[in-house]
Design a protein around this nucleic acid. Structure first.
Lengths: 340, 340
DNA sequence: CTGAAAGCGCTAACAT
DNA sequence: ATGTTAGCGCTTTCAG
């Protein structure tokens, strides 16, 4: 039999109102009764029911975490890590996070996550690109939203975004500083703002070092950014541009695919071709050679997302945070001359 | 302004009780009013508040998912995938899953997950090994529990367990069938029942093929089963047993570490030494060469866990499910002769 | 400083 | 067949 506020009240010889007041540290309460009540609470090991509290307070202490099926199913633990970060931070705020995936294509408002329809969350985090229709539908419910790693075309929201331009620059500059001049770029899904920004970073770096940009060195026709696309893109690139010495792949998955192709042609990495990825999704998982990459602090992004959500819930003011990224130099990039 | 059952009742010109009955498909309700109510529900886009329903029904439609910090933080997506499976299946049952990590060491009852103390879950899934103290503490709350990939020393619970003995046999038999006779075993944390079972499988296979067991071929002194331990264990093994041609590592992490050591000594995999892991945690992530392993259906285990929990909640009968595993043959094992 | 009482949104006896 | 009503466990005015 579960113990309630009544049991505590009875045991402490006070009303349930008093118990509630004590629990909320209400000022006008005598130290004596406070002590009395706390004793009863301890002895009974009482914890208020979250459900009951939620009903009267009109708040759930849950936050929703939204992801498309595609992102949920990715083998690289990118969004998983963001989720984990959210989970961490949420706990510190006494919140739980409810995960929910949505289809990649979205039509009817009815398919909104149950936790929104059933008013089971105080706010939601949307991670990664989602169909714009769902955002429109959610507007109706006036639920606080923060975006992580995506920003919708319209509207004003809280968001934590990766500095993709900076990351693209860092990756490319690293290759340049290691003596490379003929640098390929492997892209895909160029509608995605992140990928576009990474390409922009690539161009910026080239320009900074006065290296002429050649459209023959970039391949951007792939539909997605997975390993298979990387394999295919590398094939295209290396067959048309024979003098490439280094490649910047727009993410690690593509880099991995590219490495596979390169090895298959009998070339060695990095002695024949250097390569750098983006996301640092492999961490200590092995690739051979270990892949240099741009590290994205995924867990931190999740943490920051929850913070922004808490802030928004109390202040109602949206706020954007730009996350900077770091180069992680491993063994997939070769220094080809002493310059720099 | 959020819309409630009252709004529906008013709009449909009935009492709230009728609305509730309609929503629950109660028999004695005239088709006419049913239609009337449903119209109102649709037009208002009404969804019952989960919180309110939970309060009166004394059930939350949440399930808790418990993991130690260590397991939560592992880079290999093992428990993550189990969690994902649970999430999938939970949704089908109209449940949400609340994730909560616990410290690896456990003392006081007070540190029990909030969702238990605050009665915010109808049952919990415990994945992986957890300190026995926490189980004792939870007993008090009489919360339905199902274990995944672990079974406590005492008590009678629902559980979904891997057939580790079978897996160990399959791995070892594979090596034997590929002609290997001097086969090393890399273990660690031998208190863990899973690891012991895998070793047992190894011994069974040896015996089945009348290959003498030599304690010099197994190293079980490592404290954990991560990459570093694998590296170290391989070092120990290969320095003492020079004629080893194949290794069965008790999990993929250790196998990876071992591969790293082997490569460092200049030996080639699989031509000099074959190796097989367990868990198949790498999936399509690259190791070089791709690691043969024993595939554990992680997502399915999560699904099965939720099913068992649902079953237990309604029947109150614990039930154990043994999950069988499969060999995944990739390129890390060499056939060294035609002998079977 | 403390207690009585209303009510959060819903379900399920019990009436009608 | 439908409506009335009493709670579920809690918070929070409002009286005393």
């Amino acid at each position: 039999m579960t113990i309630t506020i009544k049991d505590v009240a009875k045991k402490a010889n006070v009303s349930i109102a008093t118990v509630s007041l004590v629990l909320h540290n209400h000022k006008r309460i005598s130290p004596a009764t406070k002590k009395k009540v706390m004793r009863a609470v301890d002895e009974l090991n009482y914890h208020p029911s979250r459900i009951a509290r939620g009903l009267v307070m009109q708040q759930t202490h849950n936050i929703g975490f939204l992801l498309t099926n595609d992102h949920f199913l990715r083998t690289e633990p990118f969004y998983t890590h963001i989720f984990l970060g959210s989970e961490f931070e949420a706990r510190d705020h006494n919140y739980y996070v409810l995960l929910n995936t949505i289809p990649n294509k979205f039509n009817e408002c009815d398919y909104l996550p149950r936790f929104i329809l059933e008013k089971n969350v105080d706010g939601v985090i949307i991670a990664g690109k989602v169909p714009s229709e769902i955002i429109t539908c959610m507007e109706v419910y006036k639920v606080p939203i923060v975006f992580i790693d995506y920003y919708p075309v319209a509207g004003e929201y809280s968001a934590v975004l990766i500095d993709n331009v900076q990351g693209g620059e860092k990756a490319t500059e690293h290759l340049i500083e290691y003596g490379h001049r003929q640098i390929g770029f492997l892209g895909g899904d160029m509608i995605h703002p992140s990928i576009r920004d990474r390409l922009q970073g690539y161009k910026n770096a080239l320009e900074k070092f006065k290296i002429p940009f050649s459209s023959k060195n970039i391949v951007t026709g792939e539909s997605a950014t997975n390993r298979k696309c990387g394999y295919h893109a590398a094939e295209l690139l290396l067959q048309s541009s024979k003098n490439i010495t280094a490649i910047f792949a727009c993410n690690d998955a593509m880099a991995l695919g590219a490495m596979q192709y390169i090895k298959k042609t009998g070339k060695k990495i990095p002695s024949d071709i250097s390569i750098i990825g983006f996301d640092d999704v492999l961490e200590d998982l092995s690739s051979d050679p270990p892949l240099s990459s741009i590290r994205v602090p995924k867990v931190d992004m999740g943490i920051e997302g929850v913070r922004l959500l808490m802030e928004y819930i109390s202040s109602n003011k949206p706020k954007k945070v730009l996350i900077s990224v770091d180069l992680v130099s491993r063994d997939s990039v070769l220094k080809i001359n002493g310059k720099y």
